[in-house]
Each structure stands twice: as structure tokens, then as C-alpha cells.
Simulated scan of single mutants.
Amino acid sequence: MACNQSNHSNESSSPEMYLIIWLTFPLSTVIILANLLIIIGIIYNRKLHNTPNYFFLSLLFADLCTGLALPFIPSMSLERHMKFSNCLVLHIVPNFLLLSFLFNLVMVHYECYFCIVHPLQYSNFWVHRYVPLALPTVWILPLFYASLPAFGWNKRSPNQSCEDCFYKYIFPREFIYLEVYGLLIPAILAIIFMTVRVLWITRSQVKDICKLHRSVQRDEPSDKEHRMNMRYAKCVAVVSFIFIVCWVPYIVYVNVSTIALWQDKGESSTEPKTHIILSCIGIGSMAVIPVVLGFGNRQYTKPIRKGLRKLWDRCRKGNGTKDVTNVEVVLD
């Protein structure tokens, strides 16, 4: 009887699966291709083979894996029928990839933050000196936490006649609350704090440079000062845009999902389609952050631009030779 109910839930979830496919596949494809382009640009540029870019390369790989796992994350809210071992893999792997992405993002921001706040001590910084130790850390810690349900921290009932696959059977409430308010939210707040701190230091340095420039020139603000202020204003605008477009949807999704879980007494308190849309928009927008940072650095996209330029020149030369041969035929 329980098996029939789970099969019925699978049939009723088919419209939700179509919605997940239509929402996640285009976004997942864009994220995967964009990360591959930036990864190729970093690998083929030997000048970029240094500590900061190693961490950013690890972030790009984590973002690439998040793009691959993106179609599976919203499907966690759907109840299906499969073996418990397969259900564990279906829930643990996407959760691990999402956590590893966030850990890598925090590490990239922390490395940049320490370089700017303590430039004289950066060469002795443990992250800078022990890169082979720091890089596995941002992958092993998420793997350890995400694998806890496989070691017994789950809500599987021994009295179940059928092994229904649902996220509530894999992740206890305490596990979800600890992950959200012990890992995700503090990581986002740390990223915001480090970004604001770096912008504040940059603003004070720009003011000092302008004061020194005016003390030497003794005249009105020059074009250099205007350019520096404009660059700083653009940087603040880009950071604000990334926060509003990329972080706010994810924060809303996490809190709405946690509140719905807290109010849930048995059945789902939110519509599956609403949860699917929020998860796709929230996680997809967050996964775009490394892509925006990567394409914002011209050094990362230099090999790509060179390849496109060569391809464009070949196309123009090919069209030019065809035009010349057509002219010669007409003249003959």
C-alpha cells in the first residue's frame, strides 16, 4: 500500500520535474560553458600560475560542479521511490558540491582580504605558503559534513515497508538548521564583511592619493583624480549589483525554505512549484558570481579574446579572397 502511494507521488511530481528541467538546464549549460572558458584562459596563461589564481581556479571547478548538480538540487523537494543508498547519493553529492562552492568562495575572498589588509605579512600567510594543504581543506570539510547522513545522522524509519526517497528522510531538522545558520549564513556574512572592508580601505587609499596629488599640483582636481574616483564608483556599483542580483535571491530562498521547514507538521507547507522556482533562482544566481568575477578580469579572458580575434581575421580573409575571385570572374 505504501509502495502505491509513493508511485502516485512520482506521477504527480512529473509536472514539477518538467519545470525543473526547463529552468535549470539552460542556466546550468551557461554556467558550465562559462567556467570552462575561464578555466582554459587561466591554464593557458602561465603568468596566472600563482597562489591567488590557484584558489580562483579551485572556485571555478567548484562552480562547474555546482552547474552540473544544479538540476538535481530542486528535485530534492520531490518525493520519489528508490533504494536508500541511491537516495543518499542523490542528496549528499549536490549538498557537498554546494558547500564546497561556498567554502571556495570564502577562501578566495579571505585570501584577497588578507593581501590588502596585511600586505607586508602576506608572504608569510599560511594560505600562501601551504597551498597544497589549504586547497584540499575547502573540499574535505564540506565532504565530511555532507556525508554525516550516510554515517547515521538521518531520519530513516526502520518500520518503512517501502524506501521512499525524500529530503526529510535524509536530512534531520537539526542538520538543516546547523548547515543554514552555522555554515551558509555565517559564510555569506563573512564574504560581505570582507568585501565592505576592502572597499573601505580602497576608498581611504584613493583619498590619500588625491591629497598627495593636490599637494604637489596645487590646483583643482585633475583628470587622474576623476578617473580614480570613477573606477572606485564603478567598483562599488558592481559589488552592489552582485549583492542584489546574486546574493539576495539565495538568502531569500534559504530563509524561506528554513521557515517552511519549521512550520511543517507533516505535509509540505509550501507549494512544490514555488520551492522549485525559488531554489533555481537562488542557487543559479549565486553560481553566477565566479563567472562575473572571471569575465571581469581581462587576464582570464585574454586567450579567449585572442582566439576569437584570430577566428574573426580568418573569416574576414576568407570573405575577402572570395570577393576578389568573384571580381576577377566578372572582369574576365
Rank of each mutant, 00 (worst) to 15 (best):
F144D: 11
L133E: 08
L120D: 12
L143T: 12
F125G: 01
V117N: 09
Q121A: 15
A134N: 09
P142K: 02
V117C: 05
Q121K: 14
H128P: 04
Q121D: 07
C112P: 05
H118N: 14
H128A: 02
V131K: 03
V117Q: 10
I140C: 06
W126N: 10
P136R: 02
H118V: 09
A146D: 00
C115G: 08
V127L: 12
V127S: 03
F144K: 13
A134Y: 04
Y130S: 13
A146I: 01
L141G: 06
P119T: 01
Y145C: 10
W126I: 05
P132H: 14
L143G: 15
P136W: 09
A146Y: 05
H128S: 06
T137Y: 15
Y113N: 02
T137W: 13
H128G: 01
L133P: 02
F125E: 00
A134K: 02
F114K: 08
V131M: 08
F125K: 04
L141Y: 12
L143Y: 14
W139I: 15
H128F: 05
Q121P: 07
L133A: 15
F125S: 14
L135M: 10
Y130Q: 13
I116H: 00
H118T: 02
I140W: 10
N124D: 15
A146K: 01
P136Y: 05
L133C: 14
